[in-house]
C-alpha cells in the first residue's frame, strides 16, 4: 500500500477514536451540569412522587452507563433522541426530535460559514502572499496594521461598528439577519452580509498573518537563496519555491479558522439575531435540555475533528518526502 494511503487511513481511524472519547467527555460533562431538568420544569413545589415519575418517563432514573449506551447507540443510527423541552408533567407531549430541531439551525450555520469562507480564505491567502512578496513595503505595513486592528477588536464590537456604518448611517444591509428555511438564496446572502463580514474580518487576519509568516520563515532557506541566484523574479521565488513548502502551517490555521466559523460564532449570531446552532446550544444549556446540548456538542466536536484531520492529511500529501518515497 502506498504510504500516503496508509497514513491517511491511520489518521481516519485516529479521528474516529478521538470522536468516541469526546462523546464520553461530552456525556460526563453534561452529567456534571448543576441543576436538574425535572426540577427546573416542575418547580420547587413539586412532590417527590411527581419528580420521580417524570424522571422515569425521561429515562433519567437509569444508571449513567445505560443512558450513555442508549444515547450513543441512537447517534450511530442517526437518532439524537427527543428534546426535553415541550414536555411537561401535564402529560401532553409537544416535544420534537433533536434532529428536527437542529437540522435547520445547522443548515443556517453551515451556510454562513461557507459564505464567509469562500470569500475569506482566498482573500487571506492573496493578502498573505502579496504581503510576503512586498515585505516591509507600505502595502505590507498597511495590511499588517489593519489585520492587527481587526484581530485585537472583540467581534461584537466589529459587528456593532459594521451595523453603525452599513445599516444605521448608510442603510446598505439589514442589521437583523433573520433568515428562514423558505428565504431565497439571493435574499439569504443579502441578509447574512453583515454577520459574514464580521466573521471574515476576524478570520482573514489570522490566516493572512500565518500565511505571511510561513512564507517569510522559509525565505532564509538555502534553496530560496539558490532560486534568487538563478535570477528568478520575486513572485516566482515566492509562488514556486516558498509557497509549496509552506502549506502545512497555512492549512492548519485555515482549518482552525473554519472550525471557528462553525462552532465559535454564537456572539455574532446573538448580535445579528441569526438563527444558528450556537444560539440553540446556549438556550438548551439554560433550560437543561440535555439531548440538545449533547447533540450540539457532538456536532461541534465532529466539525473540529474533521477539519483538523483534513488539514493533517493535506500537510501530509503536500510533503514530497511522503508522497514520493525513495
Amino acid at each position: 500500500m502506498h504510504p500516503v494511503i496508509r497514513t491517511v487511513l491511520q489518521r481516519l481511524a485516529l479521528g474516529l477514536m478521538t470522536l468516541f472519547f469526546v462523546s464520553i467527555v461530552i456525556f460526563s460533562g453534561v452529567e456534571m451540569l448543576p441543576g436538574d431538568f425535572t426540577q427546573a420544569v416542575l418547580g420547587q413545589a413539586a412532590t417527590e412522587e411527581t419528580v420521580a415519575a417524570f424522571r422515569r418517563e425521561l429515562g433519567l432514573d437509569q444508571p449513567s452507563y445505560v443512558r450513555y449506551i442508549d444515547w450513543i447507540g441512537g447517534v450511530l443510527r442517526g437518532d439524537f433522541g427527543t428534546s426535553f423541552s415541550g414536555r411537561a408533567a401535564s402529560g401532553i407531549d409537544r416535544s420534537r426530535d433533536v434532529v428536527d430541531l437542529i437540522g435547520p439551525r445547522l443548515w443556517n450555520t453551515m451556510f454562513l460559514a461557507s459564505m464567509t469562507a469562500i470569500v475569506a480564505v482566498p482573500l487571506a491567502l492573496f493578502l498573505g502572499i502579496t504581503a510576503a512578496l512586498y515585505r516591509n513595503s507600505i502595502y505590507d505595513r498597511v495590511v499588517n496594521a489593519t489585520t492587527l486592528a481587526t484581530i485585537s477588536t472583540p467581534e461584537f464590537f466589529v459587528a456593532y461598528i459594521l451595523i453603525l456604518f452599513l445599516a444605521a448611517l448608510n442603510p446598505v444591509f439589514p442589521s437583523l439577519a433573520n433568515v428562514s428555511p423558505d428565504t431565497v438564496l439571493s435574499e439569504r446572502i443579502y441578509r447574512s452580509a453583515l454577520p459574514s463580514m464580521t466573521l471574515a474580518l476576524v478570520i482573514i487576519a489570522h490566516m493572512m498573518r500565518m500565511t505571511r509568516a510561513a512564507i517569510i520563515n522559509l525565505l532564509a532557506s538555502p534553496y530560496i537563496e539558490m532560486a534568487r541566484l538563478k535570477g528568478l523574479s520575486s513572485s516566482r521565488v515566492i509562488l514556486f519555491h516558498a509557497l509549496p513548502n509552506a502549506w502545512a502551517p497555512i492549512v492548519n490555521v485555515i482549518a482552525f479558522n473554519l472550525a471557528y466559523l462553525v462552532v465559535g460564532v454564537v456572539v455574532v449570531e446573538v448580535v445579528f439575531v441569526y438563527p444558528g446552532v450556537g444560539q440553540l446550544m446556549v438556550d438548551a444549556v439554560t433550560t437543561r435540555d440535555i439531548p440538545v446540548v449533547q447533540a450540539c456538542a457532538l456536532i461541534f466536536a465532529a466539525t473540529y475533528i474533521v477539519l483538523n484531520l483534513s488539514a493533517d492529511i493535506i500537510s501530509i500529501v503536500t510533503n514530497p518526502r511522503l508522497l514520493h518515497p525513495r
Binding site: S221, M226, A227, K230, G231, P244, R321
Partner: peptide
C-alpha cells in the same frame, strides 16, 4: 539587469546540494 545575468551568464553551485535543491520540485 542583475537578475538577467544571474542564472543565465553567472551561475552558482552551493555547498550543500541537499539544502539548495527545493524539496518540493
Amino acid at each position: 539587469e542583475k537578475q538577467k545575468l544571474r542564472g543565465a551568464r553567472i551561475a552558482y553551485v552551493a555547498q550543500s546540494a541537499a539544502a539548495a535543491f527545493n524539496p518540493a520540485h
